[in-house]
Amino acid sequence: MKLLIIYTYPNHQSLNYEFLQKVLLGSKENSHIKELQVLDLYEENFNPLLVFNERKRRRDMHIDPSTEKYRNQIIWADKIVFIYPIWWGRPPSMLMGYIDQLFASNFAYKDKKGLFPEGLLKGKSVVCISTMKGPAYYPLLWLHNAHKILMKRALFNFVGIKKVKFFEFGNMESPKGNQWKKLERIYKYFKKIHH
């Protein structure tokens, strides 16, 4: 299995970075994970802004040379792991900008007759590890599960990725947030996964 980890947090002295370290540690101890790449969007200075003009057309996003490296990473990966905070009920704009540019027509999906397009990323799987200040039940009860619906139904299922696992960790700024227990859970998960 080939693992692509997309890390989206601007600070390495952070709990999100500790989650990244646990993913890496568990993965390195897992004989099923043969290769691993990390894309740190902030370290990469990824530009999340969409630009369309006479020279840069939306219909050509799937062949844009400036994002070819990132498309190749997605093609290469069997499993894509996203690590990010939930801000205002959704992933950060940096990650959304990456998604806007990479999950483009004729790369991630293809329009066809009928209601839904053909997903072109079939066979891949996704793990979303997200942290938030509020309680874990907040997205479910207050936001009607908007985060999971956005990521799973509106994005991953749309492009053909059916296997999506979520870890939504709440109370992450609280001294009673059980941070180490949650870090250990992620470590154990990645140490054991095999597909």
Rank of each mutant, 00 (worst) to 15 (best):
L3A: 05
L4H: 04
Y7I: 01
T8H: 07
Y9V: 09
Y9M: 12
Y9N: 15
P10R: 02
P10H: 04
P10A: 00
H12S: 10
H12A: 09
Q13N: 15
S14W: 00
Q21C: 11
Q21I: 09
L24A: 03
L24N: 05
S27N: 02
K28F: 09
K28M: 13
L36C: 04
Q37P: 00
L41V: 04
L41E: 03
N45L: 12
L50I: 10
L50H: 04
N53Q: 03
E54F: 12
R57Y: 03
R59Q: 11
D60G: 02
H62K: 06
I63G: 02
T67E: 09
E68F: 06
K69M: 13
Y70L: 12
Y70P: 01
Q73H: 09
Q73V: 04
I74L: 00
I74W: 01
A77T: 03
K79H: 11
I80L: 00
V81E: 00
I83R: 00
P85M: 03
P85G: 02
I86Y: 07
W87Y: 14
W87M: 11
W87N: 11
R90T: 14
M96D: 14
G97H: 05
L102V: 02
F103M: 07
F103T: 07
A104C: 02
S105Y: 12
S105M: 11
N106P: 07
F107Q: 02
F107M: 06
K110W: 03
D111E: 13
K112M: 08
P117Q: 09
E118P: 01
G119A: 00
S125D: 09
S125M: 06
V126D: 07
V127R: 09
V127F: 12
T131N: 08
G134K: 11
P135S: 12
P135K: 13
P135M: 14
A136D: 13
A136R: 09
Y137F: 15
Y138F: 15
Y138I: 11
L141P: 05
L143R: 15
H144Y: 15
N145A: 12
A146W: 12
A146K: 11
H147G: 10
K148C: 10
I149A: 05
I149W: 10
M151E: 04
M151P: 02
M151W: 02
R153H: 11
F156I: 00
K162C: 05
V164A: 02
E168R: 08
E168W: 01
N171L: 14
N171I: 04
M172H: 01
P175V: 01
K176Y: 06
N178A: 10
N178Y: 09
Q179E: 12
Q179M: 10
K182V: 01
E184W: 11
R185F: 07
Y189I: 02
H195T: 00
